[in-house]
Design a protein around this nucleic acid. Structure first.
Lengths: 221, 221
DNA sequence: GAAATGTTTAACAAGATTGTCAAACCAAAG
DNA sequence: CTTTGGTTTGACAATCTTGTTAAACATTTC
């Protein structure tokens, strides 16, 4: 075998780029082959059909995402809040390395319902692991009154929403909210904001015997 | 003209459904025509090309979104926090009526860069109006120390992230986080969580002379 | 070096998809 | 009734896209 690994790998890389930026329907096997520098017949030789190539790419992507998130929350022994912050930080930095990934996943699970089963199954395992890993620590800290009582599901969804949406909306909001700012600087600033939001979400609800403004009923009409 | 309004409208409705659920590339003019109950030649008679039909649909959608958001924040005279809460509530309910809209916009602005200019221009006007409408009120309340000092851009992006992402991720997370819960109940619960997050984000940073847990350095390693 | 096995290509086939067109249709105006 | 104008259709053309195939090519093995 000459450098078959390279050819196959080249096709996979090109396919991932094409699929993630254009979606399944927008991606053309001819474009992928061209981008990989091979004839499109070779693409079919290696991956049979567009569908199979897509599945392979999707599988690879989810595996990497899964590994990255599990690893992100694996810092053990530290208090819940530290582990959470560290996990969110790594999650965000992972997205910074794969900025098109959220858009791709979101689109494909919505547009192509056949995929949902696969994605959901693997996400299920992933969420299960993260939950199991954090739940006990969270309860412990909540029991001590150090953090507010929140459902872990809500809290994590809050965090993922904040982290992912910056990348989803970037093309529209960047010039709008921060014209002229370096992309990386913009994203890192958002990371800090996101962490602040989550931290504050966990501030215990004060007993409200003080006249503190946060206890006033500003929010109640 | 027999009921031409109805035919044209039927095509537009079918096109919006098809485009928003499948994206530009996934949508087929034949499917749209079929769904609208007309021949596909008629579709071309009214809208010339798929591209033009798409532009029309996109334009309509953005107009409705724009109108809804401007209206959502138009409650004048109330304190900033009330206006914000009311705006976010209405924004969320609008999305509840158009659950595929965030996915559609996010995908299209990412996948088809030609569209960005149009979307960005209109979003620019929209954000400008909302900003102008809220900024002064926000400063006033911050000056009184009733709310934390945050950039309005960050705060609104936080809120939109939280509101939109539930809909984006719904197909995957629903069964995972809340199995068996009615969709509407699930979404409304999320709305409350989102409002809580934003409220807490605005809690003024305490002076930290008390031993309150929120002042401890739990978050600093 | 010849056979066997795996890789690569050019050419082709089948089908889908967008878009056009001339003719049929229909409603209203003269 | 006939003309006129916009509507609607069936049939067609052009192109794009996926997928196949037979043959050329390379590499290993005996």
């Amino acid at each position: 075998m000459k450098e078959t690994e390279n050819r196959e790998q080249a096709i996979l890389r090109a396919a991932e780029r094409e699929f993630t930026t254009r979606g399944f329907d927008g991606a053309k096997t001819t474009s992928i082959a061209e981008a990989a520098g091979v004839t499109h017949a070779l693409l079919h030789y290696y991956f049979r059909t567009k569908e199979k190539l897509y599945e392979r790419v999707l599988d690879d992507i989810i595996s990497r995402l899964e590994a990255s998130i599990v690893e992100a929350f694996s810092v053990s022994g530290a208090p819940f809040t530290s582990r959470l912050e560290e996990g969110l930080r790594r999650h965000f930095l992972f997205l910074l390395d794969h900025p098109d990934l959220p858009r791709f996943l979101i689109h494909e699970i919505g547009a192509r319902s056949e995929r949902i089963a696969l994605v959901r199954a693997r996400m299920g395992r992933l969420v299960g692991r993260v939950f199991a890993s954090l739940q006990a620590d969270m309860e412990r800290q909540a029991a001590r009154g150090e953090i507010a009582r929140v459902s872990l599901a809500d809290l994590l969804l809050d965090a993922v929403s904040l982290n992912a949406f910056v990348f989803l909306s970037y093309p529209v909001i960047a010039q709008l909210l921060a014209p002229g700012v370096e992309p990386r600087a913009f994203f890192l600033a958002r990371l800090e904001e996101n962490l602040t939001v989550i931290r504050k979400r966990l501030i215990p609800d004060p007993p409200c015997e003080t006249a503190s403004p946060s206890c006033s009923s500003l929010w109640l009409p």
